[in-house]
Simulated scan of single mutants.
Amino acid sequence: MDLIGALSASPTQPGWITVQLDAGDAQPVMLSPEAVVLDLRGAICDKGAVPHKCTAAQLEKALKKGGVPYAKVTLKSGVAVRVEELVQE
Results as ranks from 00 to 15, higher is better:
47 K>V: 14
44 I>V: 15
27 Q>Y: 06
72 K>E: 08
50 V>W: 11
76 K>W: 13
68 V>M: 10
51 P>A: 10
74 T>H: 11
5 G>Q: 00
62 A>F: 04
82 R>W: 06
86 L>K: 14
54 C>Q: 00
32 S>A: 15
76 K>Y: 13
89 E>W: 12
5 G>F: 06
81 V>W: 03
58 Q>P: 03
75 L>V: 07
84 E>C: 04
76 K>R: 14
48 G>A: 13
19 V>K: 01
15 G>F: 00
22 D>H: 08
60 E>G: 06
29 V>W: 06
87 V>D: 12
44 I>P: 01
74 T>G: 04
19 V>I: 13
18 T>S: 10
76 K>H: 13
67 G>M: 12
38 L>Q: 05
67 G>D: 04
89 E>R: 13
24 G>V: 10
56 A>Y: 07
79 V>H: 06
32 S>C: 13
7 L>K: 04
22 D>M: 10
23 A>R: 14
51 P>H: 08
89 E>G: 15
61 K>N: 06
12 T>G: 05
36 V>R: 05
51 P>S: 12
72 K>S: 13
34 E>P: 06
47 K>Y: 06
77 S>Q: 14
68 V>F: 12
50 V>F: 12
59 L>E: 02
56 A>N: 08
43 A>D: 07
30 M>E: 07
79 V>K: 03
60 E>C: 11
39 D>M: 04
89 E>K: 11
83 V>D: 00
7 L>D: 01
36 V>P: 01
89 E>T: 10
16 W>V: 06
78 G>H: 13
63 L>Y: 02
18 T>D: 11
49 A>K: 14
76 K>G: 05
20 Q>H: 14
54 C>W: 00
24 G>D: 08
54 C>G: 03
59 L>F: 12
63 L>D: 01
76 K>D: 09
